[in-house]
Nucleic acid binder design. Sequence first.
RNA 1: GCGGGAAUAGCUCAGCGGUAGAGCGCCAGCCUUCCAAGCUGGGGGUCGCGGGUUCGAAUCCCGUUUCCCGCUCCA
Length: 498
Amino acid sequence: MPLSMDTLVSLCKRRGFIFQSSEIYGGTGSCWDYGPLGVELKNNIKRVWWRDHVQTRADMVGLDASILMHATVWKASGHVDHFTDPMVDCRECRRRFRANTLDDTPWVHYCDATKGNMFRIPGGGPCTHCGLPRTLCPDCGKGELTPPRQFNLMFKTFMGPVAEDAAVTYLRPETAQGIFVNFDNVLQSMRRKLPFGIAQIGKAFRNEITPGNFIFRTREFEQMEIEYFVNPHDSVGGRPADEYWHERWIDACMGWFQRYGLQAGNLRLREHEKDELAHYAKRTADIEYRFPIGWSELMGIANRTDFDLKQHAKWSGKTLTYFDEERKEHVVPYVIEPSAGVDRALLAFLADAYREEEVRGEKRVVLRLHPELAPIKIAVLPLLKKREEIVRTCQAIREELARRWPATYDDTAAIGRLYRRQDEVGTPFCVTVDVQTAGDSDKGEAGDGRVTIRDRDSMQQVRVPIGGLSAVFGDLLGGETWSVVAGRVGVVTSMDGG
RNA sequence: GCGGGAAUAGCUCAGCGGUAGAGCGCCAGCCUUCCAAGCUGGGGGUCGCGGGUUCGAAUCCCGUUUCCCGCUCCA
C-alpha cells in the first residue's frame, strides 16, 4: 500500500518531527513547527546541501541576506506588479478574473432586448442591441461577480513603528533577490571570475492562494537557492555557457537528491513548455518527486538570463556588470538558478525513507534515512535497566559518543521496543550494553568491555570493544557501508541466527 | 473563494438525547540476557469554539474556527 500523507503527518507528530503551528489555539493554516527531531533533520539537510554545493566547490560562495529588503527591490524584480492584481470571482461558474483587465475582454451577454439571446461581444464596448455595459461574468454571462479582492502574494509589512507608506516593504517571496542585489559586493570582495555562483538558504514568504498538503505548500517556507553567473558570450563544449551550465546543474541536483537516499524511480525531470515559462526565463526544468500526493515539483532549475541584473541596474542606477579581461568588454552575466525547497526536500526524504516491513509476523516501521540526515545517529540502550553497572556504562558511552555525533539513551522499555522506536525515527545504529559488557558485581564477575552494535536496515549485530566504538562509528558515519565495516570488526549475527 | 467531508485521550477510532469509552502509545512497579513479550497499577479529554432546543446535549439545530479532499489559482 502506498504511503499516505496522513500516515506521515501522524508519525511526524507522534515522534516529534513536525507539529502544527499554534495547535493549542486550533492551529494556523499552512504553518508547521519543526519539533526536536524535525529540526535536526532539517538542519542536516541544509548542512549537507551547503557543504556539497558551497564549501567543497571552488566556484561557489555563500550569502545570508536579510528577509526585509528595500521595497524597490520588489518593483525591480517584478513582484509588486505581478503579485498584487485585484481579482474577482464569478459566483455562478466560479471562474476568476483580473479586475483591471475585465472591461477590455470579450464578454458573453444574454440580451433582454432580444428575448435573452446570447451574444459574444468583442472588446469592452456595450451591447449594440440594448446599449448596456457588461455587469455579469464575461465568461458564462450569468453569474454576478464578487467585489475585487487584492491577491497579495507578498506579505506586506512596515519598517518602523509608524505605519506610513514610505516604510512599506515586504517579507521576501524568494531568496534570489538578496543574491542579485549583492552581486557586485561579492564580485568586489571575493575577486571572483565567471563562472561562479552564490548560494543562500533562508526563509521566504508567499500568500499562497491554496496552501496545503502538509509541508508541501506553506506560506512560510525555506529555500536553498543558487544563482550561478556565467558569461553568455563564452562557449563550453560548443554550446553557449549558460546552456552548458544549466545542463550541468540539472545533473548535479538530480544526483544530489539520489546521493542522500531518494530513489531514482521516484524522481523525474520535467521541462517547462514555452507558454509556461516565466517571461524572463530561457529554459526551466523542474525536478519532480513522486510525493504521497503524486508527482510534484521538488525544485526548479531556471535559466533566468540577464533579466534580474539588468532590472536592478535599471532601478538602482548602479552598474551591475562583469568585465571580461580577454574580450575587454563589460557583460551582464546570465544566471542559472537551481532553487530547492528545504521543506519539500525534507518531505521527500521522509517519504522515501518510510518503510513498513514484516519482522517475525509483526509490522516494523522504519525510516531508512541516510545516516547524514538521521536526526539521531546512535542510540545507546541497556539490555537490563535494573543493573546499575549496565546503566552507568551506557551513560558513559553515550556521553563519549555525543562529543562527535547526536547520541541518545533510552531505557523506558524492553530492548525490542527500544529498537523499534529508534527504527521509527531513522536512527541508523544502536549500541546495546548487556551483563557481559559491564560484569556482575554481585557474582564478582568482570565485564568483557564489549558491546553490541545493531544496524537499522539489516538488523544485523556485531560485537566490538567499547574503546573501538569511536573508530567504528567514524567509519560507519563517514560513508562506509555496514557490511564492510561489520565484516572487518567482528562476527556478524543476524536476528534469525542469534 | 466555491463544493464536499471531518473535528471525542498522544495516535487510530467507537459512542449519535440519560454518569465519557476501546485498542495502541505514554508513565510507574514486578518480571525479563537482543528485536513492538507478560502481569499490575497510573496519568491524560469542560467530546474544536459560541449560542439555541431540552428536565438533561459529545449526540439535535444555528453560527463560527480549523483541518482534509476536489475545483479555482499558482513567477
